[in-house]
Each structure stands twice: as structure tokens, then as C-alpha cells.
Design a protein around this nucleic acid. Structure first.
Lengths: 216, 216
DNA sequence: CGTTAGCTTGAGGTGCATCAAGGGACGTGG
DNA sequence: CCACGTCCCTTGATGCACCTCAAGCTAACG
């Protein structure tokens, strides 16, 4: 369950990038979720659409034996919860202390322009899923980690120091690898002078062109 | 380029399943494509929406060195070409002799109800992409092939004999495997009594419950 | 009957997983 | 302030699932 409640007026400004500006006029209240708290579960009715204000969210599916595939990370400015026809196909959880703004799906669907924004957002989501398909189906561990880092850098403003909100386990479950392989690959990239692992959650990109090269 | 032209009135009835019934009222002509002919290329403007009448289509992305990931197969009744915001992110090709009905995107977007159908179709596409992400990221070769076969059986009416329109190479590029692994896996499944490879393009499912089990 | 394209099968190699141990950061209690 | 546990990450040793390379098989077609 969500923790404390915040009035929408209290919120800070979300990071400004193209996607973030294409926002919905959210009405209602923003709420905070603690680390690993569920936002909605696979199978639940799809009634609310969320926007990340602070923090980060993971969306994943599970196999019966517990294997997990993260299909998407949502960062400040991103909308999520649109992916469903009626019931959610993924579970979503806050990765860290996270604030989300939300709107009833029904209220948004009434407005013509909002509907257009939602479907554009769903198409963007599909494009990202197809990117990840290429990564999981055809790229090596080195290439996967490079894709992940470059994508994250692009989405968080393009600075050279990446602040990772997610753990190695999250990255592994996103890239179809194990934590050991993710860790070893980062060490390998550091050895090659591509980046510097300043600490586990802070990575400085040193030779970005070489990393981009690895993504083809 | 498309081969011969057909008047729409000449077309046979497309296979009847729930998805197929949710059709657009296509105006214009249906055309045929030969084996391996391109329908549209990655990067091309997204102007036309297609529906498979006969045959099958693959949609894929390539890496610079030629590695290919097929992100979707389209079968009779399926719509495609909606996935793009402005430019196509995938290339599509006819897998075999294929007939497609088409409509201008602009003409469909004008109609309120058609727009809704398109966005539902895009969401279905997203769900399928997420399924495939789970498969590529977290399933073994045996589980991947089982998922593929069960999915195909479900989509083609549920009969026990599957007529595969696609080659082993296509299946491999869809499942993130090599042709040798696909072939060996099918042989292994046959040895276990799960199915019978009647010939390369014809597979009889013998123990469907066991195959479903493999998909979790 | 030869040619070709696609599929199957075998032998061996390798990239990543698994198993295992150790290190660093952080919090908690003495 | 330090001892101790916990969580997360890193590193090492080993194993195996799938890839690579290679050869043979089958069917379609001239």
C-alpha cells in the first residue's frame, strides 16, 4: 500500500526532456511508495495511469519457478500503466523511495487529446520493447550492458555520471543475465577504460563513443 | 514491389478467430507479395496499415553485422504496420506467397472507432512483445520452442497439426537461437513423444499439455 | 540424374551460469 | 567508539547449454 500522501502542488518540477513535456494534466493526488512496494500486480484491473515524479519503477513478469524478466524501467517523467487492454500483464514495483502522480484511466479516456497522448505513449513503449528484444535475442553480455548504460544515459539527460537507481539483480533481470555476469562485465569495461565504477550505484562513462559502438 | 493486383471482392474469407473479427473496413485493393519480398523497410514513413489475408509476414530488426531478431510473425487476420510513431522501426517481409489488404493510415485515423481499434491492436502487439521478452530473457531452448509451438497452435485455430509457414532460420531468429539448436530441440521433443516432425514444415502435437507445462 | 536449398546430426569449443568465498558499506547494539 | 550482522557487490573456479564448424541427408526441380 502507498505510504504518505502529498498534495500535487507540493511536487517539485520533473526533469525536463521531450517525453516529460508530453505530459497529461494529472488531477488528484500524488503518493509515495517505499522501496520494493508494489504499485499494481499482474492480473489486476487496469484503472489508473501513473507518472513518475521522483524515483524509479520496474515492470516485470515471472515464470512459475520464480525466474523474473524486467520488461521496463520507468524514470521521472515516464508514464506507465497504459500497457493493458483490461488486466495488467506485468507487476510494477517502486525500486527506491518513489513518488507517483496518477489519474483514473476512465477520466483520461474521455478526452480526445489525452487519448492520442496515451496511444503515442503506448507506441513508444512498444518501440522500447522491440529494442530490448533485439538485445536479449542477439547481443552478447558486453553489448547488453553497453546498450543498457547508453539508454539510461540518454534518458537521464545525457550527463557522463550515471546514478543507477536499480540493483545489479534488477539490471541482470532486465538484460537476461546473472548478477555475476553484470558485475564482471562492468569490471571488464572499467579495465578497458570505457567507464569507471565509482561505487556500485554510480558509474562514470569515459569513452561513450566506444560504448555506443558496442550497441552497433 | 508487390506482384499482381486483386480486387478486394475476389478475396477468400480470412480465418475466423476473435482477433480476425476485429477487422477494419478496408477500402482499396489487396495485393500479393512473393516469398522474401519486402513490404516496408525500417526507417520508411508509416503511411499504410496492412492486414494479412493469405500467407505470413515477418517483422525484424538487424544489427550492423547482420544479426537478425524477428520481433513478430503476422498470420491471416493479423493487422500490422501500426507500430510506428512516424517511421517504421522494423522491416517486414512476406515469408511465403502472401496476400495483404491495406488502408491508408490517414484515412483510418480520421474515424473515431477505427482509431480505437488501432490502439487496441497496438496494445495486443505490446503484450506479445512482452511475452517474447520473457522467453528470450529467461527461458531455455526447450521452453522457447515449446512456447513458440503453443503460441502458433493457439493462433492458427488450435488444431494438432501445425503447418509452419516459416523456415528453421526464421524460428531461430525469432527465439534467439541457431537453426541447429531449433532442429535438435524439435528432435529431442520428438524423442520424448511430445510431437512428431511429419516433415520440416508440418508438426503434429502429440502431448500438448506437456508442451504447455514447459511454458509454465 | 545432377544441383541446390533447407534440414538434421555429430564433434568440439565457448560464453555465460552456477557454486563458492570474500569484501565493503551500513546499521544496530554493547 | 568498536564489534557484529546483513545486504549487496565482486571475484574466482568449474560446469554446461548452446554455438560453431563440418558433414551428410532429403526433397524439389531442372
Amino acid at each position: 500500500m502507498p505510504a504518505r500522501l502529498l498534495a500535487v502542488g507540493d511536487l517539485g518540477v520533473s526533469p525536463s526532456d521531450a517525453a516529460a513535456r508530453d505530459t497529461l494534466a494529472f488531477i488528484g493526488i500524488a503518493r509515495s511508495w517505499g522501496r520494493d512496494q508494489e504499485v499494481f500486480a499482474e492480473g489486476a484491473a487496469c484503472e489508473t495511469i501513473y507518472k513518475v515524479v521522483y524515483g524509479a519503477v520496474r515492470a516485470f513478469r515471472l515464470l512459475a519457478d520464480g525466474r523474473r524478466q524486467i520488461v521496463s524501467f520507468y524514470l521521472p517523467g515516464d508514464l506507465f500503466g497504459i500497457e493493458a487492454l483490461s488486466a495488467h500483464a506485468v507487476t510494477t514495483e517502486a525500486i527506491c523511495e518513489t513518488t507517483l502522480a496518477s489519474a483514473r484511466r476512465s477520466s483520461l479516456i474521455e478526452d480526445e487529446e489525452q487519448r492520442g497522448r496515451l496511444s503515442r505513449c503506448a507506441l513508444r513503449e512498444l518501440l522500447r520493447a522491440q529494442d530490448l528484444l533485439l538485445t536479449l535475442g542477439r547481443r552478447s553480455a558486453l553489448e547488453r550492458v553497453a546498450s543498457f548504460l547508453i539508454d539510461l544515459a540518454d534518458r537521464t539527460g545525457g550527463g557522463d555520471v550515471l546514478a543507477l537507481p536499480m540493483s545489479r539483480q534488477d539490471i541482470a533481470d532486465y538484460l537476461g543475465l546473472t548478477i555475476e555476469t553484470v558485475s564482471r562485465t562492468l569490471s571488464e569495461m572499467q579495465a578497458r577504460g570505457l567507464l569507471r565504477v565509482q561505487d556500485a550505484r554510480q558509474i562514470r562513462l569515459l569513452r561513450r563513443a566506444a560504448l555506443v559502438q558496442l550497441c552497433q
